[in-house]
Design a protein around this nucleic acid. Structure first.
Lengths: 155, 155
DNA sequence: TTTTGGGTGTTACAATATATCATTCATCAG
DNA sequence: CTGATGAATGATATATTGTAACACCCAAAA
């Protein structure tokens, strides 16, 4: 997750391009929130964003953050981790895609995966049911490989 | 979701059997909460459970409900819908399984599906990554078939 | 210039969830 | 039986996450 300046700038620029194409407004606030989410070292909560926003904007209130987050979610520029109440930058905002996350309950590590198998099976399920997903949520809560090993050692 | 008395009793009895096998305690409170979740006409929130619990138990507080819910979740007797902050009874608590839900943002309808394709792809992803899921969360947020049709009519 | 709609500021509050500590209760070893 | 142990519960307070509602601003179109 830890991001260098270069790729951060690239992400922001890319977001700007996308929004222009889509004729939606990536305002300074929204852009700043996107920056904070992407620059964060892992998933970040709305109120943590709010705190960091204080260093840029004078006295922001919760709705400020939530409005920006809603916009960014709609544009697919960020993902929400429902089970963590936290947000992460989207690694490839061009093509809408099922966000798939592995969330380790032991160490807190969150990893985004991009399994075409999962994506395919979700598509198939939609075909079968006539359901049309706007925002797929796939979050596997459990134990990452590393923590399984260190847990085994303890026992 | 709407459940008749017979299947409700069957579910509760089944839960009791399972807990006995597993040597965990399905106390009266936990059983009551399970009953409320299963009897509910759709997903039910923790505070709604709390309200209904008042008719049985004298002056319960939030922790009472959340403790019971935690237990039931661990035992796989209920599912949590992370994106709704609500709970539903598990339709087949014997074998742990990926809970997969289609959640319609228009009409609020929630449908549990059991796609072996999704289950397989999740298993495969775990194999590939060494991650071990304890609680898979699959929630497709979007529009159900019925609402798509009625939306089309409006436009 | 008026209107219109999106975006923002601000205040207050709703909804969801947990920390903490005291108490009870079943179980089991001695 | 008794005391010890750990799980479950009671009770109070508070933390965390998310919205409602209304006023205001500003750019673009009529």
């Amino acid at each position: 997750m830890a991001l260098n300046q270069k790729s951060l700038a690239k992400i922001l620029q890319h977001a700007e391009t996308l929004c222009k194409q889509r004729e939606v407004r990536l305002t300074p606030q929204r852009s700043k929130v996107l920056e904070l989410v992407c620059a964060a070292d892992g998933p970040i909560g709305a109120y943590e964003i709010l705190d960091r926003l204080r260093q840029t904007i004078g006295n922001p209130a919760p709705p400020t953050v939530y409005r920006a987050l809603d916009f960014l979610l709609e544009q697919g520029l960020i993902h929400k981790l429902e089970s963590l109440h936290a947000y992460v930058g989207c690694s490839h905002p061009d093509h809408p895609h099922a966000s798939q996350f592995l969330i380790c309950s032991d160490c807190g590590d969150v990893r985004e995966i991009e399994s075409s198998g999962i994506a395919d099976s979700l598509r198939q399920a939609q075909k079968n049911t006539g359901f049309k997903a706007k925002r797929p949520v796939v979050e596997l809560l459990g134990t990452c490989a590393r923590c399984q090993i260190s847990n085994d050692r303890k026992v």
